[in-house]
Design a protein around this nucleic acid. Sequence first.
DNA 1: AATGAATGAGGATTCATTCAT
DNA 2: AATGAATGAATCCTCATTCAT
Lengths: 201, 201, 201, 201
Amino acid sequence: VERKLTARGRERRQQILDQSARLFAERGYHPTSVADIVDSLGVGKGVFYWYFESKDDLFLEILASSSHDLRRLQQAAIGDEPDPLRRIEIGIRASLRWFRENRHLFNLSQFAATEERFAAVLRQNDAVAIADITRHLKEAMADGSVPEQDPEMLAHALVGATRHLARTYLYHGDESVDLVADVAVHFVLGGLAGGRPATPR
Amino acid sequence: VERKLTARGRERRQQILDQSARLFAERGYHPTSVADIVDSLGVGKGVFYWYFESKDDLFLEILASSSHDLRRLQQAAIGDEPDPLRRIEIGIRASLRWFRENRHLFNLSQFAATEERFAAVLRQNDAVAIADITRHLKEAMADGSVPEQDPEMLAHALVGATRHLARTYLYHGDESVDLVADVAVHFVLGGLAGGRPATPR
Amino acid sequence: VERKLTARGRERRQQILDQSARLFAERGYHPTSVADIVDSLGVGKGVFYWYFESKDDLFLEILASSSHDLRRLQQAAIGDEPDPLRRIEIGIRASLRWFRENRHLFNLSQFAATEERFAAVLRQNDAVAIADITRHLKEAMADGSVPEQDPEMLAHALVGATRHLARTYLYHGDESVDLVADVAVHFVLGGLAGGRPATPR
Amino acid sequence: VERKLTARGRERRQQILDQSARLFAERGYHPTSVADIVDSLGVGKGVFYWYFESKDDLFLEILASSSHDLRRLQQAAIGDEPDPLRRIEIGIRASLRWFRENRHLFNLSQFAATEERFAAVLRQNDAVAIADITRHLKEAMADGSVPEQDPEMLAHALVGATRHLARTYLYHGDESVDLVADVAVHFVLGGLAGGRPATPR
DNA sequence: AATGAATGAGGATTCATTCAT
DNA sequence: AATGAATGAATCCTCATTCAT
């Protein structure tokens, strides 16, 4: 249902989007009923379905838009930085700032991964992020600043370390973004350089 | 309900545990009804409630036991290895083998994180894992094989990178455990050593 | 709400009437929402309630006006034909032509019969039709061209046979009106004359 | 959901079937809610869905089973009667007895015709009835007791007249079955013999 | 230990109707 | 005359849990 919305309509829609994201994040997707959402906004149930096809639909929109939002921020931060390793560092720092601002969204993607109809969107989003990073890594390998390795795997390791630090210290904990970012960058750049296995296999 | 179970009873109970884990993993916790579980086992509903208090209860048990299981494996693998870095490496390799065997459990802990009544157990489990690793790291810092840094943060970075690689290449993908382990270990050991930030802050 | 309508208003009203009848006929009364109707006309919901009290009200109006329409056509066709049997034949033929033109209305009266608030109007309409036919039949019995029998029952038999043929061959099927009319007339006139029961009761 | 039902279960199922048919017939399909049905039986809502997939499903089952029921009765009544016209007469009389007993079902098939998902079953049922009658008519034409005409069209005319008489006098009215049957048979047998059109086309 | 049956609160969604503009 | 927005009761259906046997 594509609707032409008035200014007031767009506002209401955004209100629902924000409030739902907050509630889903706090209590979980399933435990949050449409009734909870509309009640918390003090509006009738019909309002929800005036703006969204279904609860699932709304959730998918939250997922998609938050990933776009993050990516936009990263790209703005990176600008036209020429050094690929610095691009990665800037990307990590930007992500962490975004995670901090949008910490409540952590649970949403956590959850989305567990039900196939949502997982698809998530994989899509992730693929984009990984592709971005992979590109930087290939450049870094080309100019010798990172030893040759499977760039995609590295990208995943990088993402995993960063996100987990963010979840732990920015979502559950309350650490400063800069401190976490320093550790993350240090760890990741070290990881890209690689260490000698303690045990030769 | 603590029940004294016959041998047959214990078997049945395990059957339910296994089957539930599989279904929760495939479809998600909420979309899997108790009816789905018992139907898929060809038994009546009474059976379920004979062995478990509730659906939530069952899920909590799955979470707890799988984390114990993993820890037991890690400790067995580590044995009395004296070198802390090697202990970490061995732990990572053992974890990846376990993740491979139990890849369906990924979704379960993903999901558990999103609803508070389950998240508590999860945090508990995680704390144990982090404590183990932190201990190794402190030793490694003491003997100079890893530069001094916040060991807990490193532990989280390590866990994040490892799990994400596992999820990507052992759960969604179908990579060989050893290959993934090599990349993970290489990345992590590098990360522990640390890299020089591309941008001085 | 009796409103004085401008020419444009009357047109709009008729538009709604026509479109609703079409949709009710295609999908059924209940499955067709007021929203469906106004959307299919590309107008807002207010329009509907400007011209009609309620959905029920609109439906009743469709029923009433279609029955008037049919009767008007029959009477025009019959004119001042003096022979009662010919009047009946002409009436049948006229009805079948009308049914052909308005086949979508079949479902409407079918449906109306199933909910009491609409059934009343329907019975009213039918009573008029039956009265017309009964009058012809009494005349025919008086002049001996049809054997004495309960004229009202005959009228119903006649109506039942005719309508069912129409529904089958003009609504679901796509037979020519004239062919169906020939069969109907032949059957009905035979029926009025009557047959000898195969089994004496 | 094919379920193995105990004796008690089968009884309950039948109870629901009967009660629903009654309520659908009285008030119409849509105005009768599942809540109405279970409340009128004094049971919980779950019971309904233990025995039936959905409200639609239940309705389809009522339709199908009532048509089977009628056909069974007709065939039992006809037995091995050799005369095709007498078979038709017996069929009509049996139908009318059945309609009398099950008058409440009239509205159900009326309604079913108006929504496509139900109409399909109805057409199926009707096709069987028409095929039966058509067979008798062909025989009757072969042995010269009915003039050659399109037998299927005659079958429809016959069915239309009979049903309409039944609806009028056995459902809305309260006439004796035998009297209505006499009129119906007389009209139908006359109709099969055919009359001369009052107006040569 | 186990089954089929039952409960009923709760959930998503629809929709006739009304309202403010 | 007309629109987009809003209402909220009503609807179908699900499902964890309990019960009788």
